[in-house]
Design a protein around this nucleic acid. Structure first.
Lengths: 126, 126
DNA sequence: CAGCATCCGACACGATACTG
DNA sequence: CAGTATCGTGTCGGATGCTG
């Protein structure tokens, strides 16, 4: 999306009426954010390696970066266990769980979109 | 957000369980999409020049491109009047109006996020 | 196992100038 | 007025290799 996260998230610098909307958008923007949410939404903590497996084709760098952003945004917690081999588990915070209604809205919109597209019988064409 | 719209929107090529979610995300992804929605959500058609004014700092190229994408996605209609000077008006389709609940979810999430950030008293720090 | 460093490409977006 | 054409830029994310 090419959002400028840092500007968008700072409601002091960006104090318009829709700051909330924009902050929320910034929070979920990132190619993998909602897939990560999906992997965590059952509530149980999930390990880094398992996340990587569920989001196939994500690189470790990107996964770590997205997780760090989400942690910074307060969506999830990172718990590190000082073991050998190391283990790190991620789980949703309360705020993170508030993504659920958004997720459902997105699902609804997506369905409406898909239905309409099928109805129109207009292939994407690109 | 750097989504690959074309892949993401094509549910035949991308037939996983969350195709709807991803399609929806692709639809609203783009730095300006939701601001355009906001400008149109009252229902009345809006002219290109007015849109440009409301979304200050958007370039004409980008505005035209985002509008074209949204039209292609079936979110809005473009009506051209053969006048001098030319006039083009944009308004939401039925599908476009289905963005409303999503908008509200985003607002809620954004509010929760902002409240929590204030509560933590942790400046964004970046 | 988890994840950082580095290099690199793709693409979204911006600035500016030009048309019907 | 409502765009296109062209060029330039930054940011996101991928590939690979290295550490504790």
């Amino acid at each position: 999306m090419s959002y400028n996260r840092h500007e968008t998230l700072d409601c002091k610098r960006n104090p318009n009426k829709d700051c909330g909307v924009e902050a929320a958008l910034a929070i979920i923007s990132g190619k993998w954010k909602l897939k990560i949410f999906k992997a965590l939404r059952q509530g149980a903590p999930v390990r880094f390696s398992l996340l990587k497996k569920e989001l196939n084709d994500i690189s470790e760098k990107t996964l770590a970066a997205q997780l760090r952003e989400m942690e910074h945004d307060g969506l999830l917690t990172r718990v590190m266990y000082a073991e050998v081999p190391p283990r790190v588990e991620y789980s949703l915070t309360e705020l993170g769980q508030k993504l659920e209604p958004l997720f459902l809205s997105l699902e609804n919109l997506g369905l409406a979109y898909i239905l309409q597209k099928m109805h129109n019988d207009t292939p994407v064409g690109i």
